[in-house]
Amino acid sequence: MKATLVCSGGLDSVSLAHILAADHALSRIVSFDYGQRHRKELDFARAVSARLAVPFHLIDMRPVGAALTGSALTDAIDVPDGHYAEETMRVTVVPNRNAIMLTIAFGIAAAAGDDAVAAAVHGGDHFIYPDCRPGFTDAFAAMQRAALDGYADVALHVPFVRKSKADIVAEGARAGTPFAETWSCYKGSVIHCGRCGTCVERREAFDLAGVADPTAYADPDYWRAAITARGVV
């Protein structure tokens, strides 16, 4: 398999980059600027492509992103604190984001002769994000087979779609992922805030996986209160 990887610069997609590279299956990395409130995650995506010596494609989706209003990731809406499974985290949905990005990535992969598009969507995202669920990825893969019929045969590779964030940390650690060189926080400060849903999920995943978390957090202990409030512990 030679895969085009959709990479945000976050823990999940950077881990998948290293896992694919270890299997000699990583062909190129594609990232998207959709007008997100902070773009530092894109620096981490660019860095992993350099580290793994594969081409990097940055797609300017800002005009499209400007029309996808109503999300705390793109608009002047406060990012809520708390566990990722809280209803309040729905404000971080960017409508159809994965469907749009994957469509572009499939075009790039087909043009480049790659036989797969890889994405790091995972089970922990199912509650909030409809375009991270198996129903979506199965339907999208079928749609792309029809879209490229007779031109290219490109599969959708989503190895984490039924796995947890802790599973990703464990697998990423085995592949030598430098977790400090990933960015998750939705607030985009100098260091991870430790309080937003993705910071809480990140910190919890390291704990569950039994892997040391190298991340610096502004509030390193908040995650325990957040998961306790959800009845996780």
Rank of each mutant, 00 (worst) to 15 (best):
A72W: 00
L102R: 09
P95K: 06
M89G: 00
N98V: 09
K187V: 15
F32E: 10
S49I: 00
D114Y: 08
V14H: 08
D12R: 06
L26F: 08
V200A: 06
D138C: 01
C199Q: 07
V30G: 10
P159R: 11
S49H: 02
F56M: 05
D219R: 07
A66H: 07
K163Q: 12
G9I: 02
G70T: 03
A25D: 05
P63T: 08
D131W: 09
A142T: 07
A226G: 06
R37M: 07
F140P: 03
H24F: 01
S189P: 00
A17P: 08
K187A: 03
C7H: 03
E41W: 10
S164G: 04
S31M: 08
T182P: 12
S8M: 02
V14L: 10
G70M: 10
R162H: 11
I227R: 14
A155I: 08
W223A: 10
V190A: 15
A120W: 02
D23I: 00
S49W: 03
D81Q: 10
R97T: 11
V211E: 04
V117L: 08
H122Y: 03
D60K: 01
R97A: 12
I59W: 06
A229L: 01
G10N: 10
L26C: 04
V94I: 14
T74A: 12
A111W: 05
V233G: 09
L102P: 04
H57K: 13
G188F: 09
I59T: 07
G231R: 08
S184L: 05
D78F: 02
H83A: 15
L16V: 04
F56V: 00
A205W: 04
A173R: 07
H24N: 14
T88E: 14
C132W: 07
D219E: 14
F136N: 01
G150E: 05
A72R: 00
R28I: 01
V79L: 06
A155S: 15
G188Q: 07
L11E: 01
V6F: 05
H18W: 14
V158W: 02
D219I: 02
A105H: 12
S49K: 03
A111G: 14
G188D: 10
D219S: 12
G10V: 04
T198F: 11
G135V: 11
I77A: 03
V169K: 00
L156S: 09
D125W: 12
A170D: 00
T4V: 15
F127Y: 15
K163V: 00
A142I: 04
R202E: 04
D138H: 13
D23Y: 00
T88C: 12
Y34W: 06
G107A: 12
I191F: 11
G176K: 11
A226Y: 05
F206H: 01
T74W: 02
H157C: 11
A110Y: 07
A67G: 01
A25Y: 01
W183S: 12
Y34V: 08
I128M: 12
P159F: 08
T228E: 13
C185A: 04
I191D: 12
T74R: 06
R51D: 14
G150W: 05
